[in-house]
Each structure stands twice: as C-alpha cells, then as structure tokens.
Computed example of a mutant assay.
Amino acid sequence: MTDFGLCMDSLDGLSVGDALGAQFFVPGTTWEDLLDGTAPAGSWPWTDDTEMASVLAAELGRPGAVDQDRLARAFAGRFEPYRGYGGGAVVILRRIREGEPWRVVARDAFGGQGSMGNGAAMRVAPLGAFHAGDTRTAALEAMRSAEVTHAHAEGILGAVAVAVAAAEVGWARLVRHRPEPRELLDAVAGYLVDSQVLDGLRRARGLLGTSVGEAAYELGNGSQVLAQDTVPFALWVAATRLGDYPAAIRACVEAGGDVDTTGAIVGGVVAAFTGRGGIPEAWLAQREPLVGIGNKA
C-alpha cells in the first residue's frame, strides 16, 4: 500500500519547517516578529533538506523499490552547494557526480567510518508517509535511501526512525486514531537496533511532560549535526505536538541548534498526520515555491 498524497503533504510540511527554520539563522529574527507578520519578510528559501527530500519524493513516483544507483545520481546531479550542504555532503556528492561509485564514496567518508550525520533523516519523512500502513517497508526503504550517502549505522538508523514515525502517523491519520506520545515513540523504537539513536529515543520516552528546553538539553538540538543529536529530540517534538503543526515548529525554534533540520524532520512527520491543512496558509505562501521539484515529483 502506498499513498502519494500523504507523501506530498509530508513534503509540504518538511519544506515549510525547513524554510521557516532557516530564517532563524538570520540575526535579529524572533518568533514574535513572525507571528505579527513583520519578519522574516519575503520568500523563505528552503535548504538542502528540501532539495534532497524532493529528489527522494520523485524517486518514489517510480514503480518498485528505491533504486539506489539512480537515487545517488539524482542527489549528485541536483545538489547546489549554496543550499547549505555540509562539507562532508559536498565531498560525497561531488565525487558521485564525477562518476565514482556511491558505495565506495559513502564508505570513505569521515576517515572510513561513513557519515553519521542527520542528512538521511532530514529528507526521509515523505518516504515514510508514502508507505503509511506498511511500516516494515518504510523502514527497509529508508535504509536503502540512507545508504547512498550514509554508511555509518547511526546515520542509517536515524533515517529509519523518522520514516517509521511518518509511516505510523500517516496510517493513524487514515484510520483517524491519534497515537499517544509514548505509543508513537515505542513504535519507532521497535524498528531499531542498539545504537545511540535508540538510546536517545528511550530517553525521549522518559522526558514526556517536560519542557522543550529540558528535552533539548538532554537529547540535543541538532547542533552537532549528527543523527543521534537530532532525531530523538525531533521525534519527541513530533510525538508531543502531533496535532499542532505551528506549535511543533515553534518548539524547534525555541530549542535552537540546527533549526532548519529539526524543523524539516518535525514538519514532515507532523504534516503526515495533519495534512497540508494543518500548515498555516501564510507560511505556505512565504515558503519558496517547489515548482519543478515537489510538483514534478
């Protein structure tokens, strides 16, 4: 079972969370300015999070499983360094663009250990939503999508965790059942093996009912740009604010750190549950258009 409508809702949520979050790297921008309409002004450009998520969404429009060779070529052919790609990602994608096998390039990264960054997790929520109702397939396809750039287990498992969350909440939307935060986090943990990502999710479960500041302090806010420093907090936010997209994104802004990436992960998961209608129209209007990317997908 697949649902491209849920995938596109998730992509909208991801791209708005990414584009809005990126505005808070602009000095002087505050949430209060956003609410009263005085800032950020104009279009909100999206970053590499949305660019890679859109490429992945386009791949889902093809029959069959994710074709890793084609996906690697698409990532490499599309990437624009000014979108905010990390240094490691730039090296990986340039080498693939130049014709090197992605399996070799991904394994070579970071001294041969592979990337444990949050890049595979930041782009994968639409894939999870696409497989709503078939969480096992969502997990397996998330692994395949992650492996083309992330050879380290933490980077791969971060992607699995986000995809599983999106698949679970997408199905919850279809059957009109909102999972409790503990229920959602437990469902995600059930698809992971021992890892720092899993340890973080277990800690997140124990932090339900705490403040955003405390959760970010204990789990991380993405400032290390690692899956284990990003995914547990992002899924804590999504689980605790699943029915309220603006509140979920505001929590990411309040936590600071890698706000565009936590906003992308949280936005992609939460919008799989709320649908596009849960995203403020003004935010959708200010997000840089997805013409030729999301629409093409």
Rank of each mutant, 00 (worst) to 15 (best):
L184T: 04
G114T: 07
A159R: 03
W171L: 14
T47D: 05
A159F: 00
R78K: 10
A146R: 03
V148N: 07
L157P: 04
L20C: 13
G84L: 06
A19P: 12
G158F: 01
T50R: 07
R103I: 00
D36F: 15
V55E: 09
I92V: 13
D134S: 10
V231C: 01
A239E: 03
L35D: 11
A282P: 08
G114D: 10
G256Y: 00
A142E: 12
L14W: 09
F25M: 12
G37K: 10
F4N: 12
D244K: 02
R107Q: 14
E218V: 14
R287I: 00
Y85K: 07
G128E: 03
D134T: 02
S223E: 10
D108G: 15
G292D: 10
T240V: 09
R73F: 07
I265V: 05
K296D: 13
G117P: 05
T29F: 06
A57V: 13
V90I: 15
G243T: 06
D186L: 15
E141P: 15
S223K: 11
M122F: 07
Q224V: 12
G292S: 09
W236M: 03
L127P: 07
G42N: 06
G292F: 11
L140C: 12
S211Y: 07
Y85M: 08
G84S: 09
L174Y: 09
G84W: 04
V160W: 08
E154I: 00
D244V: 01
S145Y: 01
R83M: 12
A153I: 13
D18A: 03
G155E: 08
G155Y: 06
C7E: 13
V124S: 02
V160T: 09
P40M: 11
A248T: 04
